[in-house]
Computed example of a mutant assay.
Amino acid sequence: MPDMTPALRRRPLWRLFIMPALLVVAAIAWSGFWFYAASEVGVRADAWRAREAKSGRVYDCGKRSVAGYPFRLEVSCEDASVSLVSQTAGAPSAFTARLSEIMVIAQIYQPNLLIADFKAPATLADRGEPPSMKVNWTTGRSSITGLPTNPQRASIVFDNPAIDRINGPVQTPLAKAGHVELHGRIAEGSPQDHPVIETVLQISGGTIQEVHPLLAQPFDADVQTKLSGLKDFAPKPWPERFREIQAAGGHVEIVRSRIQQGDLVAVAAGTLGLNASGRIEGELQMTVAGIEKVIPALGIEKMLEEGVPQATLDKVAPGVKSQDLNNLFGALDKAIPGLGKVVKQNANAGVAAGINSFGTAAELEGKKARAFPLRFVDGAVFFGPIKVAQLPPLF
């Protein structure tokens, strides 16, 4: 009986190599793309540095390298530095910050998201001078959504930042916090056409030394602002940008501000702008709960006992002479022995009564509070009728 089974056909062997060959071709193409992208990093970085230099921000990198093959780009910049030139009003000045290392990471499949890690410490110095400040942190990271020339959103976060003042071999604590983060985004417009910037700043466990004992106590802050008046993100120094904002009638809206220090809670909202001289104008409405508990920390009684410096009076009571105040206490003692001392020792109660006299009753987070206007007039800051500070012009 003849064999009716058809002869088995041999399949061509070349079909078995199609998929491996395609994978090899894809790998070669991907590798070529990655190395091309890596080679472009230096070109794009140099172009960005040139753009920033026009704004008075000069960036430099001691050693730059690119890694991360095959799916991301890791750009490492060791001994990084930035010099800020003409970023404040007045005579041109230069300020240089140096950082141990910056690592910028971008995924190949998501190139519009850049993540940067900062390695501590950083030093700050005037041009030609040794470092005057040192900054440390445990974690420092930032992220940018969008291209550096066309950003849409940015964030920067630091854990346990600390700033020390350097005086030769001695380092003195100046400020620190448990956590600091700053977020910004374009709320309206675009980077090329009148962007409106919304920011949120959060500080946990912050302290500031060498200013006032009150600020040396830990505080938390949460501030949300909205900035309008920018023309675009074109490179320019900050004084020029502030002048542009003023000419356009721009302003900073304090949408929300909350500061807490122990039992003290303060919230504020309002709008601040710039006048033709570059000085801050505007008003914030503040509501404060627990202010009577921090008045003793102001040290008013001690200041009166030791004598009021003229510089202090110039800030809080312009036109009043220190000698006149001392003569007043002397006259009180002559009229009624010990009266001047009693007035000094009860100064805190007088301050509390004075604050209550120009504030209005309010309630904040279920607590009794006082509401006050915080006014900015030609750079002078008034807490009610009392001048508490004088701010320099911004251009």
Score class of each variant (00 low, 15 high):
E253G: 04
S83Q: 11
V180M: 09
G307K: 09
T199W: 11
W48N: 08
T287Q: 12
L84R: 09
R72F: 08
D164H: 13
L84V: 02
T88P: 05
E52T: 08
W238L: 12
G340H: 06
D263C: 01
P173H: 10
A125K: 13
D222H: 08
S93Q: 15
P131Q: 05
G340L: 00
G319W: 07
V388H: 12
E281D: 12
A276P: 07
I144S: 05
I254A: 01
G140A: 01
L274V: 07
P392L: 00
R98S: 07
L374W: 03
K321T: 05
P337S: 04
I280R: 08
G366A: 02
Q202C: 01
T199F: 10
A269Y: 03
A125V: 03
V43D: 10
E74R: 04
I115L: 04
T145K: 13
L325D: 04
E188C: 02
A53G: 11
L304S: 02
S83I: 03
A97V: 14
G206K: 00
A120K: 12
C77S: 14
V343E: 11
T199R: 10
A122W: 06
E292H: 07
V265H: 04
R185I: 08
G330S: 05
R57N: 02
W14Q: 02
L313G: 10
Q261A: 13
G168P: 09
C77F: 13
V223W: 15
G340S: 09
A187D: 06
V135P: 07
K226A: 01
R375A: 14
I203G: 01
N346Y: 05
L174S: 12
A125N: 07
A37M: 12
L114Y: 14
S100M: 06
E283I: 13
P131K: 04
E365Y: 05
K236A: 14
S83Y: 03
V265Q: 09
Q110K: 15
A311I: 10
N160Y: 11
H179V: 06
P213C: 08
N327K: 14
Q107D: 12
P92A: 13
F383W: 12
R72K: 14
I18W: 03
L313C: 03
A125P: 14
E253R: 12
A234E: 09
L264I: 05
Y36P: 10
K334H: 09
Q246D: 10
L182C: 01
Q260M: 02
V104S: 15
E301Q: 14
V265A: 06
A247N: 06
N275M: 08
S65M: 04
G90F: 03
I254S: 00
P131M: 02
